[in-house]
Design a binder for these strands. Structure first.
Length: 222
DNA sequence: TAGGCCATCTGGTCCT
DNA sequence: AGGACCAGATGGCCTA
């Protein structure tokens, strides 16, 4: 859209009208009209085309010319400020995108190398963190239980119990179409409130075995 | 071709 | 005053 504008504005640090695009041509031309470069720095000679009929008119002309130049300067300053702001905004969005890319690298890789969209990345990261937190929490609970039962084996509940879903199946996904009330595909409620232990075990399997495939259901309805 | 996603521009608002 | 942040608008690209 504005690549030409980018080119046009990228190095704009002077008041030269060569930098203006079409929508600025008016002001630009008016600037030229009010302060023609041919007369700048050149004292008006009595034989010049500009006939000054009176001192007051000369004063008015001088004032007008001065004011016009001021307006043009203000316009250029504003434009310059806008260009700088655009540049900062562009950099800001680039850094935001870089952060999203970094976030994508720490999320489980998608098998077919599909790049997650921004919203998918954020939602999956949310769910992934939640799942990992739950894993730690359950493991901790189990560890305490096994300590109390000295002879009990250390096993994560559900981890090896629930049948692993085939990739792509929604057996364990919490899409909005699921009847489950908890929805890690995008947890609007507190992530610490999985519906059932079966759900959790299933979810845990997803995290550990299938990455985000189950968290980012196709269709992405939330 | 419609819809989704994205990059960019822009003006407003808030903060330092 | 200037920068950061935000949301709306716009146009390009891609895909079903």
């Amino acid at each position: 859209m504005c690549t030409s504008m980018e080119t046009v504005y990228s190095d704009m640090d002077s008041s030269s009208c060569d930098y203006f695009t079409h929508d600025d041509e008016d002001s630009c031309s008016s600037m030229h009209a009010s302060s023609p470069s041919s007369s700048i720095g050149k004292p008006a000679s009595p034989t010049s085309d500009i006939q000054i009929s009176s001192v007051t008119e000369l004063g008015q002309k001088k004032r007008r010319r001065g004011r016009a130049r001021n307006e043009a300067t203000v316009h250029v300053v504003k434009k310059n400020r806008r260009v700088k702001a655009n540049d900062r905004e562009r950099n800001r969005m680039h850094s935001l995108n870089d952060a999203l890319d970094t976030l994508r690298t720490v999320l489980p890789a998608f098998p077919d190398d599909t790049k997650l969209t921004k919203i998918e990345t954020l939602r999956f990261a949310h769910n992934y963190i939640w799942a990992l937190s739950e894993t730690i929490r359950i493991a901790d609970i189990e560890q305490r239980q096994s300590k109390s039962r000295a002879d009990a084996p250390l096993l994560l509940p559900n981890l090896c119990v629930v049948d692993a879903p085939s990739p792509g199946s929604d057996a364990c996904s919490w899409s909005s179409s699921s009847s489950s009330s908890s929805s890690p595909s995008y947890c609007t409620s507190s992530p610490s409130s999985p519906a059932t232990q079966d759900d959790y075990g299933c979810f845990q399997n997803d995290v550990l075995q299938y990455g985000y495939q189950s968290f980012v259901p196709t269709g992405m309805s939330y």
